[in-house]
Amino acid sequence: MSYQLRREEVVDVAGLQAMLEESPGKAAQAILAAAGQGAVEAQLLLGQILLDGRGIEADASVARRWFGIAAQGGNAMAHNMLGRCLEHGWGGSADLSQAAIHYAQAADAGLDWGLYNLGNLFATGRGLPANQAQALMCYEKAAHMGHAKSMNLYGRYLEQGIATAPSPARAVRWYRRSAEAGDFRGMFSLGLVLVERGQVAEAAPWLEKARVEGNMNFLRAALVTLQGAGPVLMAFAARYADEIERRGA
Rank of each mutant, 00 (worst) to 15 (best):
E213D: 14
V195L: 04
G53I: 07
L158V: 07
A63D: 06
M77E: 11
P205Q: 11
V224F: 06
A78K: 03
G91T: 04
A58W: 07
D95M: 03
I56G: 10
N152C: 14
L96P: 01
G198A: 01
Q17S: 02
I49T: 01
A241G: 08
R197D: 14
R84D: 14
A58G: 09
L233P: 10
Y157H: 08
G214D: 04
A94G: 12
M145I: 09
G89P: 01
R7I: 13
R64Q: 10
H147L: 12
D112I: 04
A63M: 10
N131K: 09
G228H: 04
I56R: 03
A249I: 11
I101H: 13
Q199K: 08
F236H: 11
Q132C: 03
A27Q: 05
Q17A: 01
A70P: 11
G25I: 03
R247S: 07
A34N: 11
D108S: 14
V212S: 14
A130E: 14
L153Y: 11
G146C: 07
Y103A: 05
A42N: 13
A148E: 06
A63V: 06
G228W: 06
E21A: 15
H102E: 07
N75F: 14
A169K: 01
V195R: 04
R239P: 05
V232D: 02
S93R: 15
A60S: 13
L158T: 07
G228K: 07
G38D: 13
K149W: 14
R54E: 00
A42G: 14
A94Q: 12
R247Y: 07
I69K: 03
V200Y: 06
A70M: 10
G73Y: 02
R211S: 09
L44Q: 10
A133L: 12
L194C: 08
G114W: 00
E41C: 09
Q48F: 06
A109L: 08
V224N: 08
R220I: 10
Q227I: 00
A165G: 08
Y3E: 14
R220F: 04
P24A: 00
G114T: 07
L44F: 11
V200G: 02
A35C: 08
L50K: 12
M234H: 13
S97H: 09
Y103S: 11
N215V: 09
W174I: 09
P24E: 00
M77Y: 03
A99W: 02
E208G: 06
P129N: 03
Q199D: 08
L194V: 05
A235D: 12
L128I: 11
R197Q: 15
G248I: 04
